[in-house]
Amino acid sequence: MVKVPPWLGEVAQTENARCKDMMSRILTSLATRETARIVDIQRDAEGHWRKLMALGIAPGRIITVIQRFPTFVVEVGHTHAAIDRQMAGLILVE
């Protein structure tokens, strides 16, 4: 069962239902040092997904969680990026 952070709201609820079907989960459920493949970046209304894509965080790429606290740090390719929980919640992995 994927835990839905309250601030993700309704979009996440439906996305969450979708990810259960697809056996994918939100990045925030990954433990430190865990690696997964990105299957989708949720398109939020504010367009924050664009920032993730610009950092190279895009579907098909392999992502590793380096750190979870105080903020998420992830590695994609040769790039390290710090993203907060809200941004990390947009990333669906399998």
Partner: peptide, 9 residues
């Protein structure tokens, strides 16, 4: 606003 930033080596 949500936070994102590249971490250079």
């Amino acid at each position: 606003a949500p936070f994102y930033m590249e971490i250079p080596p």
